[in-house]
Nucleic acid binder design. Structure first.
Lengths: 232, 232
DNA sequence: CGGTGCGTTGACATTTCTCAACTGTTGTGG
DNA sequence: CCACAACAGTTGAGAAATGTCAACGCACCG
């Protein structure tokens, strides 16, 4: 029963869709479910890494804590994503910490040594791993590109435009994280984020709600996003 | 003769060190040398991707051009690095443009379709690809972490401390790129970079030369990197 | 030897941060 | 169900950092 569940969970991951059934079964045999609540630490920066993870349900953030105690979020992951493969496959230690950010989050913990062994012997597993790494790479390139914009407004506009938006007449972006965290993600203070949203709302570009932002004037946001880009 | 040269060049790449000789030979048979000068475009954002590259000698920058024509450098690569694997393996198009930044740069162009085919059939090739992707991932995480620092001085100090430094009594960092480009890399203007270096030099933290920066007071730089407020 | 562009410096404008007070929401325990 | 604590979010005022514009010196390259 548990085995079957693992199988199903693995198949639900985008990068395991194309992996043959017998391989999925083998990976399932080296995996187990982990249920965690908000605030639970999955692993800490510097810990030795003997497994990697997939998110069945919920969300996890990867972050670092600097010398003076402030926390910088490197990445937010949601259902379907895998993480810490790179730590397992190349570094042996986690380069960041991971914390659960949604209640009743369910992870899939995939055993390391046997997975590495399987990867070394069966070429059919590599595409799944490579695909997931490439996806992560692309996201990080976007992030770098975004953070390189000097003006805070440009970073915010660009982030908003990149999010999946619901509704055609007035597309709205579900923030999915606290504004405080969004501010950190965009390398600005909560105050400036709040002020930007207020100003844009009074200009009629957006509508600012608690957990979502309605985009009322796409062209205006586009202008903000690249009208004021970085140097060189 | 050309074949032998390709073999040697491939072996010189960090991630191909552990690949068996017969595999290297196969990869060599689908590769060719390309010599380019400063300013040459290797490929453009959006172009279809049918090969990836390794740098035998020289340097290449990956960059994007925003709507208003300004250019943002995403990554700088030097000898030994490979790039565009992700574009080849997962996306089919280049997500960024690439330009040569050193004279008489020599690239290795590795044919795409046959390489993908080889990757699919021979499990011994995957570690080289995965290793290189993981390395890139780690670099980008560092970059995100760095760019997330709000203060320009903190970004600079952190970058300096992360560079390989020569000399024990007075470690010195070879910049390896124009200060203008470094400023862009750190998401600040050339003027602020210049002012920061001048101020730190007058404080005695560093010595500022044309192409290198000597680190005279590591602890002070560490304090700056952790977000302490600037001097005086 | 003159041009071209990088690097520096100065004066000034602007953005953004900091600090502080206040509001609203959420969740908890009585 | 209400009071209250805790915390996210907002707003204001002032300070600091950083960008902009402009001028100049200096190196490198033809």
């Amino acid at each position: 029963m548990s085995e079957a569940g693992l199988d199903v969970a693995l198949r639900a991951l985008p990068h395991f869709k194309a992996v043959p059934a017998d391989l999925v079964a083998q990976v399932a045999s080296m995996s187990r479910f982990v249920r965690l609540d908000v605030g639970a630490i999955v692993f800490r920066e510097g810990d030795p890494c003997r497994q990697f993870y997939a998110i069945v349900n919920g969300a996890v953030k990867l972050y670092r804590v600097s010398a003076d105690g402030r926390e910088q979020v490197v990445h937010n992951f949601h259902a379907g994503a895998t993480f810490a493969e790179a730590a397992l496959l190349s570094f042996g230690r986690f380069p960041v910490s991971a914390m659960v950010t949604e209640s009743s989050t369910v992870l899939l913990e995939i055993g390391g040594e046997r997975f590495v062994e399987l990867l070394r012997t069966d070429a059919r597993l590599a595409p799944a791993v490579i695909g997931s790494l490439c996806m992560r790479l692309a996201q990080l390139v976007e992030r770098v590109d975004e953070l390189s914009l000097v003006q805070a407004g440009a970073r915010l506009a660009r982030w908003l435009l990149r999010q999946p938006a619901r509704g055609t007449s007035e597309p709205a972006v579900e923030l999915g994280l606290a504004k405080k965290e969004l501010a950190a993600h965009l390398a600005m203070t909560p105050e400036t984020l709040s002020r930007l949203l207020s100003r844009w709302e009074s200009e009629g570009w957006i509508r600012n709600e608690r957990t979502r932002v309605a985009l009322r004037d796409g062209p205006a946001l586009l202008r903000l996003a690249d009208g004021e880009s970085g140097p060189t």
